[in-house]
């Protein structure tokens, strides 16, 4: 098992607020790692640090053995890290296919190649029928798929998924689980933020738990689910007592 992503003592402060405190963990090549924690725990902030939107206040991030903290997001993406956004950010007035092409150009400079890659990816995530739809007219479920399609078009080694399941109905959730498993089978390593425990249990090899910016647990889904620390964080003191 080769480590692909390594966080070493990462902290992030917003003024007096400590959004991340000394967080360290590793994601190995080929894994699906779940990142969970209550609202405001610092999960999205961690993604913003990994993908370069924020510089860590302390600590370092390594990807593929190379230090990436401090690089700009487009450089980090070029190295092989792609992400989706919790609050989806489609290129509103562009069609679905144009959205995906805009990212596909990163690895295929010619228009024809970019188009072919984009079409392939739309088939893969099940958005091909909607390729000519202007993305602001898509329902939420499809926008979440578009986020993933766009990220995949950059041919990432590591995919960061921020709550891809939020707002999906059970049928869409089942499809999404299949899609993510398929992406992982293609060799893409995945770090996924998720609130639905059922989803996390069914797709992750390992789970990292954040609470108030600190890592409070790490292990297999079963280990984490039975950890008193985690139960306390999720349910509050009273539930444990």
């Amino acid at each position: 098992m080769r480590p692909l992503l390594e966080l070493k003592g990462v902290s992030k402060f917003f003024g007096g607020l400590a959004a991340l405190v000394d967080v360290s963990f590793t994601v190995n090549e080929g894994e699906v790692v779940g990142l969970i924690g209550p609202n405001g725990a610092g999960k999205t902030t961690l993604f913003n640090v990994i993908n370069g939107f924020y510089k860590p206040s302390k600590g370092e991030v390594y990807f593929d053995g190379k230090r990436i903290s401090g690089l700009r997001p487009h450089r980090i993406c070029r190295l092989g890290v792609a992400r989706t956004f919790q609050v989806v950010k489609p290129l509103q007035r562009l069609t679905v296919i144009d959205n995906v092409m805009a990212s596909a150009f990163l690895r295929s400079p010619s228009r024809q190649e970019a188009l072919e890659r984009a079409e392939k990816i739309l088939h893969f995530v099940g958005l091909y029928e909607d390729r000519e739809t202007v993305s602001k007219n898509l329902p939420l479920g499809k926008r979440k798929k578009l986020e993933i399609a766009r990220a995949l078009a950059t041919e990432p080694k590591l995919l960061l998924l921020d709550e891809s399941f939020a707002g999906l109905n059970p049928k869409e959730q089942a499809e999404m689980i299949e899609t993510i498993k398929k992406i992982n089978r293609e060799g893409v390593t995945i770090l996924i933020i998720e609130h639905h425990m059922r989803v996390i249990m069914s797709i992750s090899n390992r789970v990292v738990v954040l609470n108030y910016g600190e890592k409070i647990a790490e292990g297999s889904p079963q280990e984490v689910a039975s950890s008193p620390e985690v139960i306390k964080a999720y349910l509050g003191e009273t539930a444990v007592a």
Binding site: N51, G52, F53, R72, P73, H74, C77, R78, A82, R83, F85, K89, P90, L91, Q92, R93, L94, D98, M101, A102, S103, F105, L106, P109, R111, A114, R150, A151, A153, T154
Partner: peptide, 26 residues
């Protein structure tokens, strides 16, 4: 506008953060 550059321009117009995170040097 019809080239790769055009797509990058539009992506920046629509969402600069998304564009940057998708590998575009905004």
């Amino acid at each position: 506008v019809n080239s790769r550059l055009g797509y990058y321009f539009l992506a920046i117009r629509e969402d600069q953060d998304a564009a940057e995170s998708l590998g575009i040097n905004t």
